[in-house]
Structure formats: structure tokens, C-alpha cells
Simulated assay, not measured.
Amino acid sequence: MEQKVSKYIIIENDIIESIKRGELKPGDKVDSESVLKKKYGVSAITVRKAFNDLINEGYLYGVQGLGTFVTKKQMIRGLTSISFSEELLQQGYKIDMIIDSVEEVTNKDIAEILHVDSDSTLVCVKRVRLANNEAIAYHTSYISTEKLSLEQAQTIKTTRSLYKTFAKYNLIPTWVNENYSVKEITDINVLNQLSLKKGCPSFFVKRMTYDSMDEIIEYAETYFNKDWYSVTVNIKA
């Protein structure tokens, strides 16, 4: 005997299919509760159940007094690749970056992380990660000038990738250690680059990149726009 599918599931599936086909795009308003009640011949409770499920699953969001809208597509980090750019490409995003600055600095605390003398010169590369032409992350990377000179680091302006720049000068990352937390963004420049308001919470990631000899190549700090970023971790027994 064929099992009857609940009406709210039919509504959910139809909306999801409309999103996948591109008929409903990020920011589009979906049909109102009254329209869907009439279209599917259901009660308000059934429509609200469908909306609540789709909001909880990240497909929709509601604005009181205005309606229900399609959410932006998040970049879901599966932690499957060392390269953030590669993960974006695998998910079908068009990627690019804006180089904010490439300069030499000194920083005692970061020099200690990089296992160099406290007064050593470091290369600092700051850039904005773009996905589908929207700013989703602000990266700040530090590399000892013993490994990468300022002149060499400047080639990121043509390679458009820090890891391609590393490869150009025989720096081969093989593994990384990342620490995730939630942190308010107070740096005005970062806020402006990500088009966010002061005090906006973000995913904050500290990252240390190592080569095959377990020598540290890079220390990086990244602010991710929370509306564009989530992390999925698979754990096996």
C-alpha cells in the first residue's frame, strides 16, 4: 500500500526544488501563508510547520511583518581540504580576492608562534575572500621572511592565491591546525571590507600551516561572515 505523504512535506519539497532550479533565488520572497493555504488546500498550521522546518534547515528566514525569504547559500566547510579556495570551487562558487595589504611587520607574539626570534621581520598578507562576488572572509596571514620575502609575497597579486604563491617558492603545506571560536569584529577596516556593523559576531579561526617536516609555514587569523559560513564535521566510531 502506498504511504501517504504529509502535506507539509510536499510544500517543503516543492519550495526546495524551486530553490534548486533557480526559480527562487537568495533574497526572494516565497508565497505567503494565505497563498499556500489556498494552493495546497491546507490549514495555516500545516504551512507554518513547513516554513518552520525550512527555516531550521537554513533554506528560509522570516522577517516579522514582511514575510518569508530565501536565505543566502552558505559556504559549508567540510574540512576536506587544506585549501579554503579548493573547497569553495568544489561547491561551485566563483572565487576571487581583494588584496588589502602586503607588508613587512614585527610582532613578538606571532614571531613566537612561527618559531623565529622575537624581533624577526614577518610578511603580513591581508586579503578579502570573495565568493560569487560577495565578501565572505577577511584573512590575515603571517610568514617569516626567512621562508618568504616581501618581494615574493607580492606575487599573490598575480597568483590570486597564497597557496599558489607558496608553491611558486617551494613552500608545500601538508597539514594544518585550526582553532574555531565566535568573536565580535571590532576592527573598523575588517567591518568595512565585509560590509558588517560594529560588534557583529563572526566565526574566528586561528590557523597554523605546516610542511612535511612539521615546520610551521604560516600563522593566520580569519574572520568569516557568519551568514556565509558553517562547518560540518563527520565523526566515525
Rank of each mutant, 00 (worst) to 15 (best):
E57A: 05
V63D: 00
W228N: 12
N107K: 14
K157T: 12
K157A: 11
Y229K: 07
I76H: 10
G22Y: 06
I172E: 13
T232Y: 07
I185Q: 01
S230L: 11
V105D: 05
T209L: 11
V231F: 10
Y138E: 04
Q154W: 07
G27R: 01
K25H: 01
K168Q: 13
T121R: 07
S101I: 07
N189H: 09
T106F: 15
H115G: 03
K226Q: 07
Q193K: 08
D211E: 09
I45W: 05
E215A: 07
E218D: 02
D211R: 09
N177Y: 15
D96A: 14
I136R: 08
E104R: 14
E86L: 13
T186F: 13
E221L: 06
I99T: 10
F203S: 06
S144H: 10
Y59R: 02
K29D: 00
A111H: 12
I136D: 06
R160M: 13
K147I: 04
V233F: 14
T71L: 00
V125D: 03
E146N: 03
R48Q: 06
Q154K: 12
A111I: 09
S181D: 15
K147R: 05
Q3V: 10
I10V: 08
I217N: 02
D28P: 11
A153S: 03
L150Y: 01
K49V: 00
K20L: 04
D28E: 13
N225R: 04
L130P: 01
I98L: 12
N192T: 03
T68L: 04
S34F: 07
T80D: 12
V128T: 12
Y142G: 04
K72P: 11
K37Y: 07
S202N: 04
F69R: 00
R160A: 10
T46R: 12
Q90I: 10
S195A: 02
K49D: 01
V102D: 10
A220M: 03
I217H: 00
N56L: 15
I10N: 01
Q193L: 09
K7G: 00
N192H: 06
N132Q: 07
K197N: 10
A167T: 09
A167C: 04
S18Q: 04
K25W: 02
D31F: 00
